[in-house]
């Protein structure tokens, strides 16, 4: 079974076609870098994979499931097993780091419990179960931030925030993580740290990682394969060992 199978995917806004007839397959545990110039459609593609944006045409199978046929409940269950990390970390600013990490467990708790609304316990670290809090501290440990657990999220640096966002994604026990320019707002040192942390965590836990990046070196280093989008079309999908930096830079013309 593959992690992702996308077939003839298209997405249009009114009369503007953002994605055009895209097909590709990604195996379990692979790490894929998506590159392309601004407005090429990278974010739209990622959003289609969790149906934050509804595709106009085509089919998407995630771990074998035809997710475009899912209704609200099944869709939520599917989403709760996919971690998402954005360029802007998207932490809730006024809440503690620990609470933000625990938020990653809301959807999963809804699914595993037979009580409706079980997940609302995870709105804050105060009400969360001891098990959840321990798990969250463990996740923070993995990104080496457990010492900041009770600090407010809006006091963190960009790199720290992004690591908290990763911890929140890990909290979901995901089998796949989608990251949209996860290090674009970080300085080069922090960017490298976060990328390699990300890569190692995913490899260790056999999590399929799909990230977009404007950094072609990152793409080659942290992606097993590189997928390039140009004007909404898939223009390259190759093993990163068989690609030269120049080829990738050409994708930006």
């Amino acid at each position: 079974m593959n992690a992702i199978e996308v077939n003839h995917l298209s997405k249009s806004y009114a009369d503007f076609e953002v994605l055009r007839d895209i097909s590709f397959t990604i195996g379990v545990g692979e790490s894929i870098a998506i590159i392309g110039s601004n407005g090429a459609g990278k974010s739209t593609l990622l959003k289609c994979l969790t149906r934050i944006t509804e595709p106009s045409q085509g089919s998407i199978n995630i771990f074998g499931d035809p997710i475009l046929k899912f209704r609200t409940g099944a869709l939520r269950r599917m989403r709760s097993s996919i971690g998402v990390v954005f360029q802007k970390h998207n932490l809730v600013p006024r809440l503690s780091v620990l609470t933000n990490v625990i938020h990653g467990d809301i959807g999963r708790l809804h699914n595993v419990s037979k009580f409706p609304l079980a997940g609302i316990r995870n709105w804050g670290q105060i009400s969360a179960s001891n098990r959840t809090r321990k798990k969250a501290m463990e996740a923070l440990e993995m990104v080496s931030l457990s010492h900041l657990a009770l600090q407010r999220a809006d006091t963190l640096s960009g790199g720290q925030s992004q690591r908290v966002a990763i911890a929140r994604a890990l909290m979901q026990e995901p089998n796949m993580i989608l990251a949209d320019e996860p290090v674009a707002s970080l300085d080069p040192v922090a960017a490298n740290e976060v990328m390699s942390l990300f890569y190692d965590l995913c490899k260790n836990k056999n999590i399929t990682l799909i990230f977009t990046s404007h950094n072609v070196e990152h793409a080659l280093e942290y992606g097993n394969k590189v997928l390039a989008i140009k004007n909404g079309r898939l223009s390259l999908f190759k093993d990163s060992n068989s690609i030269e930096i120049k080829t990738l830079q050409a994708e930006y013309d």
Binding site: I52, R76, I106, G107, G119, A165, Q172
Partner: peptide
């Protein structure tokens, strides 16, 4: 939106 994209409901996203 980030919470919703990882499986939280609208209610969760509102209160959390």
């Amino acid at each position: 939106d980030a919470l919703e994209s990882c499986g939280a409901t609208k209610l969760d996203a509102t209160f959390a």
